[in-house]
Amino acid sequence: MQLQRSKWKAFYEGLIEWIIRICGISAVVFVFAIFIFVFWEGKGLLFSGNFSVWELLTSEKWDPTHEPASFGAARIILGTFSVAILAMTIAVPFSLGGAIFISEFCGARLKEILKVVIELLAAIPSVVWGFIGLTVMSIFIRDLGSNTGLSVLNGAIILALMSMPIILSISEDALKAVPDSYREAAIGLGVTRWQMVYRVLLPGAKKGLLAAVLLGMGRVVGETMAVLMATGHALNNPFDTNPPFFHALMEVKTLTATIASEMGEVERGGEHWQVLFLIGVLLFTITFAVNMTAHLVVHGVKRK
């Protein structure tokens, strides 16, 4: 009985292993390709005389179709962050509370059910959320004194509902990662569960919780369809130097929604087209930075 691998088989395996290696690096290739392609389409404007990054970031004058055009995205950036920050303000307390309840206070059966519900919530497409904002949420917001109901507040509520399942599940993982021996030690000292959560779990899981909030923030800043449909999409600055300092019922434009809504109508290769790609580069950079920070918070600069 001869046990010998055939040459052909060895060749075939070598081939498969090469294909696997190539697929393995595909993620790296894609991330670089995304940056390069998006940057490439916008680079003409970036290096031309009538554009400056400083103007893009600080000028409030966004008039890309006018001759000569002005590309000041400050209001759009402020609009993006107003929606994102308000959304996080709503989402974080609920998500953390939910995560604590699910990981520490509820029974095994309820936990299973809630986790399934939350997973399903996370799966609802953003265009459906946008539709809800447009049709349902706007009714309630109109009652608060807004004409259309489309506003920072509407977008923020929708984004909060969207990001809560994500923040919650990452937070729950972070809480779960705190060793049970900590819990047992604390309970053994006679403290209540709540004291245990407050004094042992939250400090123990703080890195993971921070990462959860950051990742939620990344999602919220990058979200497109929901804000496009729910924020009303008008060029306003919701911040104010006079009281009340913040107009939650104002319609705003966000970075993502600007690209989505204006891309379809611009001349291919024109300056307006290019500036939208540059906004894409800006968005890529922001989310990249947020994701990296979240990763570094959890894993440290060097992996152990």
Partner: peptide
């Protein structure tokens, strides 16, 4: 390998509209 892992994380975090721009360009 760590670079690939970071790439996977970031690929998942790139906003969908930026993916759209990439699709348009590429």
């Amino acid at each position: 390998t760590r670079l690939i892992n970071l790439a996977v994380i970031n690929l998942a975090g790139v906003p969908s509209i930026v993916h759209a721009l990439f699709g348009l360009g590429a």
